[in-house]
Computed example of a mutant assay.
Amino acid sequence: MPDRTVSILFVCLGNICRSPLVEAVARQRCKNAGLDVAFASCGTGHWHVGKGADPRMVRAAAALGYDLSPHRARQFASSDFTRHDWVLAMDNDNLQSLVSAHRGQGVEPQPFLPWAGLSSPHEFPDPYYGDAGGFAQAVALAERAADGLVARLRHD
């Protein structure tokens, strides 16, 4: 890993479920691994700017020791391509939005789960319109992906 702090941005649609969850899980897993990494998250949409994480995600994350209460949603800005070392999208729709906004400046956006070493699923499912079980499954997937992220960062 480089001698400087690496910065990773996670991007989902509204920045109230998946990306803040992954940010919190990755932050804790990297801290536990002794890795110096800065994390942030945002959404491609504007609907939830300034709001906290979805209460269902807050509960599911808290059940496993992840605190999402400080989170406030923000929308992706083109300057994020130059402020972060990696811009990682939760699904293909978010990735396409980022690719459209990229315009050749800064880092190229990538899909998160394959970047973290997971071959399946390829996209991080959005639990927003599902039942409470989807939020618990999202936490489990975030933990698997964060473990892959730690392994990749140690290798790089």
Rank of each mutant, 00 (worst) to 15 (best):
D3R: 13
R4I: 10
V6A: 14
S7W: 06
L9H: 02
L9T: 03
F10R: 01
V11L: 10
V11A: 07
C12N: 04
C12G: 02
C12K: 04
G14T: 01
N15T: 01
C17D: 05
R18W: 06
S19H: 02
S19P: 09
S19W: 04
S19V: 04
P20D: 05
P20K: 00
L21I: 03
E23D: 09
E23G: 09
A24F: 03
V25S: 03
Q28P: 00
C30V: 00
K31Y: 12
A33W: 13
G34V: 14
L35Y: 10
L35H: 13
L35D: 10
D36A: 15
D36R: 14
F39W: 02
C42W: 02
G43Y: 03
G43H: 07
G43I: 04
G45K: 09
G45P: 07
H46M: 05
H46A: 11
W47T: 09
H48K: 12
H48V: 03
V49I: 14
A53M: 07
A53H: 04
D54Y: 02
D54V: 04
P55I: 07
M57G: 01
M57H: 05
M57D: 02
V58A: 13
R59T: 11
A60Y: 05
A61D: 09
A62R: 14
A62C: 03
L64R: 15
L64A: 15
G65W: 05
D67C: 08
L68E: 06
S69F: 08
P70S: 11
H71G: 03
R72C: 09
A73N: 04
R74M: 13
R74W: 02
Q75D: 00
Q75R: 11
F76K: 05
A77T: 15
S79T: 12
R83P: 10
H84R: 07
D85F: 08
M90G: 03
N94D: 12
L95H: 11
L95D: 01
Q96M: 14
Q96A: 14
S97A: 13
L98V: 09
L98H: 10
L98C: 10
L98A: 10
V99A: 12
S100A: 14
S100R: 15
S100L: 13
H102W: 15
R103D: 11
R103H: 14
G104Y: 14
Q105K: 15
Q105L: 12
G106S: 12
G106F: 10
V107W: 10
P109G: 12
P109E: 11
Q110D: 11
Q110T: 13
F112V: 05
L113M: 00
W115F: 15
W115T: 02
A116D: 04
A116E: 05
A116L: 04
A116I: 02
S119H: 01
H122L: 12
H122N: 07
F124D: 00
F124H: 06
P125D: 05
Y128P: 03
Y128D: 07
Y128I: 03
G130K: 10
D131Y: 11
A132L: 12
A132C: 04
G133C: 11
A136F: 08
Q137T: 14
A138D: 12
A138S: 15
A138N: 13
A142E: 03
E143W: 09
G148H: 00
G148Q: 04
V150P: 08
R154Q: 15
R154N: 13
